[in-house]
Every structure is written in structure tokens, then in C-alpha cells.
Design a protein around this nucleic acid. Structure first.
Lengths: 149, 149
DNA sequence: GTTGGTATTGATAATAGTTATCAATATACT
DNA sequence: AGTATATTGATAACTATTATCAATACCAAC
């Protein structure tokens, strides 16, 4: 498993250790092909190993993020969210505010325009977060416009 | 004060009342020309009226957001953040990850590209959040590249 | 301006998400 | 296998936020 190797390398570089708990969290994370909160990840990890502690999951997901395996985002309602980052190219999100459906997309025009903004202000690019909100076709079709007044 | 009128109209529409506490929070918010957390807003509001309660500040800033006077964002470290929204045109943020400097910008090319993404996926646009991260000229100049290896 | 019904307030408790503490244990290196 | 040290899980602590509730302020009607 390439991700496991990556984590092990990361740990070794820092004098840290590869443990069964960390591997459990990694497997739980990789098994969930969507955005997860630490809480959800905890639930999944417990399915793989009921003895795992919540603190460990919190600690480990942060480690995964540092190691470049997970990407951290922030959600409106408080809980932080994590998504796969390893060999998953950069992408942004298009989310339906009604049903929560998420589309991951990548758009060169947007990326280029962002580069232009960076250089216009003399900044050195270092990542970005873009979230487009709106109504998905299904929700828009079922009267999602406003109130049905 | 135009903002006060806006708030009063919003409240009246909903059968709510204009109170001194709400006006205090509004003045505190308007007086801070930057992004603030509810906590910071509480501090400022207490300067104007030491008897104001924290719960009231939390309640009121949410009200301001609903009324279109404040815009809500989420920050990495947990605390929600609010910025002026009244007669402040839409803009995105360019932030220095080292010193925290924030540039507000507006870029037509990005906006247009976003519209294209919406229609490509059949979504109805409903707002977006874009945050560009990087190093500001000052921080990039003082060896902000990586480690100074 | 007084009255009265209702929204609002501030203090406090409660909650959610996350982090620190710490003794027991697992890990990696020899 | 032995040993130093990083890690673990349970729990307490902490931060940001929300609910509860009796006292009070607001505003419209008189």
C-alpha cells in the first residue's frame, strides 16, 4: 500500500513510530471515499478495532494531514473535515446547499486566474480553498429557487 | 446610520425588537474594520457597554449575518469569523500564511470561470468562498520560502 | 405616560469538538 | 531479548457555541 509507505517514511523522518493504531486509522480513512469528520473517522476506525481511542484518532488524522495523505478543510457547523490528498490531484468543491451533494472539479481557467491574482499582489502561491455553493440540478428542479410563494 | 436602518427593518419584518444591546453589538462590529471572531466582538462590545453578555453578542452577530450586515466565514482554528457585508461588494481573500496579512480582492476572470463551472454541472449559483493562501511580499522576502536550507 | 404582552437579556449550565495529562504499553534499534 | 522512548486510551480540561430561564426592556395600545 503506497499510502502506508508514505506514512511510514514520514514517521521515520521525524523519529516517530509506525503503530497498529496508526495503521488502523489510515485504513479507516482510506476506506471512506468521501469527506469525513474526525468523529466519523473514529466510528469507522472502531469498526476495524473496537479498542481504539478517540484521542488517537484525532491525533492520527492530524498526522495524516501533515504527511500529505489527508487534506484538512473547515465546515460551517464546527467540525473539521478531511479528504484524501494522496495521489488525488488538487480539486475544488461544488456543493448543493440543499441536499449537500458534492462535486469535485478542477478548472484550469480558475487556476490560471488565481495565479494572476497572486502575482498582481506580489504573493507567493501556497494553496487555496474554493467552494462553490448552489443548487444541484435535482434540487433546483424541485422548486429550489426560493420559497414556493 | 444606514446599517442601523437595515437592521431595524430586518427586525421589524420578523416581529423582533430593536434593543440597546443589539445596537451596541452593531456599533462594535462596524467599528472594527476587519475580520472578527465572536470573542473579539464581545471584547469590543464590552468596551462600549461593560454590562453586555456574551450570549447576546453571539446571538446578535448571527442576527447581523442573517440581516445581510455581516458575512460569516470559517477559520481553520475553530472560531468562526465575521466580516462586513453591507455595501461591501463581494470579494475574496488572499492571506499570508506566515504573518496573517489579508488582502481582499475581486477578480472578474475568476468569477466568470466559476459561472462556467456552475453551468457545466447544471448547478444554480448560490455564492462561493475562495481563499488564496501564500506568502506576502514581506514574508517571502525574509526567507519565507521553505526552511533556509 | 401608563399598561401589558412578548421579545430580549445576562448568567449559568450544557453541549460539541478538540487537546492536554499521565500511567501503562508497544515499538524500534541493538 | 533488552531498553529507551514514542504511543496509547481514559479522562479531565479547554474552547467555541447554544439552550435555559427568571428578570427586564421594548413597543404598541390606550
Amino acid at each position: 500500500m503506497e499510502e502506508r509507505d508514505r506514512l511510514e517514511a514520514y514517521l521515520r523522518d521525524r523519529g516517530l513510530k509506525m503503530t497498529v493504531a496508526r495503521e488502523t486509522v489510515l485504513r479507516a480513512f482510506l476506506g471512506l471515499e468521501r469527506h469525513v469528520s474526525a468523529e466519523e473517522l473514529y466510528d469507522e476506525a472502531r469498526r476495524l478495532d473496537p479498542s481504539i481511542g478517540q484521542a488517537t484518532v484525532f491525533r492520527t488524522i492530524k498526522l495524516l494531514a501533515d504527511a500529505g495523505l489527508a487534506r484538512e478543510a473547515c465546515r460551517d457547523d464546527g467540525a473539521r473535515q478531511y479528504e484524501h490528498a494522496w495521489k488525488h490531484g488538487h480539486h475544488d468543491h461544488l456543493m448543493c446547499v440543499r441536499c449537500g451533494a458534492v462535486v469535485e472539479f478542477q478548472d484550469d481557467a480558475i487556476e490560471r486566474a488565481q495565479e494572476a491574482v497572486y502575482s498582481a499582489h506580489g504573493y507567493v502561491p501556497g494553496g487555496h480553498r474554493l467552494e462553490l455553493l448552489g443548487l444541484c440540478p435535482a434540487c433546483a428542479g424541485t422548486g429550489g429557487g426560493k420559497g414556493s410563494a
